[in-house]
Design a protein around this nucleic acid. Sequence first.
DNA 1: ATGAAAGCGCTAACAT
DNA 2: ATGTTAGCGCTTTCAT
Lengths: 337, 337
Amino acid sequence: MTSIIDVARKARVSVGTASNVLNGDPRVGRELRKRVLAAIKALNYAPNALARGLRIQRTHTLGLVIPDVTNPFFGELAKRVGEAADAIGCSVILGNSDDRRAVEATHLQMLASRRIDGLVLVPTPETRDLEPLRNIPSVVIDRPLRGWPSVATDHRAGAKAAVQHLVDLGHRRIGCIAGPNDLAVARERQKGYRLIVEERLSAKDGPIADYVFVGRFDYDSGYEGAMQLLQRVRPTAIFASSDQQAIGALRAAADLGLRVPEDLSVAGFDAIPLAQHVTPRLTTVAQPIAAIAEKAVWLLGAVRDGAKFDMRYKLDATLQIGKSTGPAPRDAGADRR
Amino acid sequence: MTSIIDVARKARVSVGTASNVLNGDPRVGRELRKRVLAAIKALNYAPNALARGLRIQRTHTLGLVIPDVTNPFFGELAKRVGEAADAIGCSVILGNSDDRRAVEATHLQMLASRRIDGLVLVPTPETRDLEPLRNIPSVVIDRPLRGWPSVATDHRAGAKAAVQHLVDLGHRRIGCIAGPNDLAVARERQKGYRLIVEERLSAKDGPIADYVFVGRFDYDSGYEGAMQLLQRVRPTAIFASSDQQAIGALRAAADLGLRVPEDLSVAGFDAIPLAQHVTPRLTTVAQPIAAIAEKAVWLLGAVRDGAKFDMRYKLDATLQIGKSTGPAPRDAGADRR
DNA sequence: ATGAAAGCGCTAACAT
DNA sequence: ATGTTAGCGCTTTCAT
């Protein structure tokens, strides 16, 4: 491998000067600078980032550990974090935790060894601490973690907006397909739903618990949840905690002979690309993923520069109104008749 | 940051011995080994991978550059490459090229500086060479690149299998929604289609070119392509080069009042998860993504160990039969009547 | 079996 | 403005 020494020799300057050219030190003269640049090109020289990192104690590398790139939300997140990292001259090492603490721990250990400049993490539900990373700037995304700064969508507000939209359309008996209770985001979305719906349900509608189905975030849970709710409490609208669930609900409605949105309104969460391609186009809550990624990477820099953060940043979601939500059916939506 | 020197001091051994323990050298005695291990734990020591890499000239890092993690196929690929890398103790640095040569070049330059042990690349259509990576083991995936070993699905054979399936069901007038002509995979899939269909089209059916629509791999192209084909040459089946296209075609069929598969059969390519969740479930060609990732990572090791490869590995795709393909309609499928 | 020391490629402080 | 050199943290001969 060709080193800076080779470059210096070829350009007939000292290594110090060659190094200075590399780092844009303005003190080197035009002549020498030109010779060094020429040598670099001629030798096809690529500076050794390892040696550099070892010396200056910075790697210009960020770690990103997420449950699964394959998930549309995390995939988008990975892309955006990559872009934000690019913008500040950093590469990103990606690790998939598969939501298993042990796998996550392995990745964190590796990243610590690699002396990354910062960590962006979506912790598993079991994660309690970031032991090996104690002195590396870290930010937690999407899911909160005690003692670490986090940036996430305001899931509760997003859910409230979606459910409020349904209420505004005249719905009162609104079902909810929730996500797993061990995920804070799922609880928050459900909480948002409850805050809006609770006071609108009258005694004869039964307890709100009957309107909530708890499942996973996936398609199948959406189908099953909708099936159960529709047969049990006959809601006129369903708020699903994910688009996958919402799409499953759409299918369930079809299987039960219900038209959407005439007989049933359905809203989702996440605004995955597919949401625009189902029939009818989904009403859904879009997370500000790019903003989250940018804020997280920015926070990393701030933490490194000595700021002490232990703060939860909540970013606003946006309600995207599609064709899957419409006015409540007359006979069901009107208050007693 | 705590270094191996601190560990050695704390364990009252020399750095050499501490290092040997770290690397599992069997010569160190039980007693000293135990002391070193204890010191490591007590100090929460994480070996510095930069220093190590600088010294041994290996980084245990792989580079992965793909067009876009957000694309289901590349997302899955990223995940699988990550797993294969994990299995041999490597981390992976991920870069998105957005299919732009300049962005790709930036990433490659960075990876070269980082002295990665190997590169896995999905080249952009404009990529002709991997200049900065000349002496780094590299493998190209999905799309071929002159002078570099590649591993990819046998797209042509996959397409042939799907189209042959349609033929076996009695279809003769089969349309094709192709992908962009500057992508080899798109051309290969179209070629597979042509090889099967060409000889089966009779003179009165018109030229095969009329049965081919060239677009992008996305949903909208699928919709538009199906619309055009269905109104122009009235095929009884459509082979789409991607699942996104196929799903667009499904929608087009619905908009034209055609039932699938009774009036029209539709087959796709890629077997994205969604393909199982549309109605009817899609017949599609599954790429062996995990196998591709494993083979690529394995190849990297082989190349490093001195093997000289300039070979194209083609891996078999698998036809997944769904409900979107069925027997050709009587009146159209039977030869003259 | 263990210790001492050179050197991987670079930057930065210091000397000129 | 340019050259010299110590040292970042590790592995690996080479002595002992």
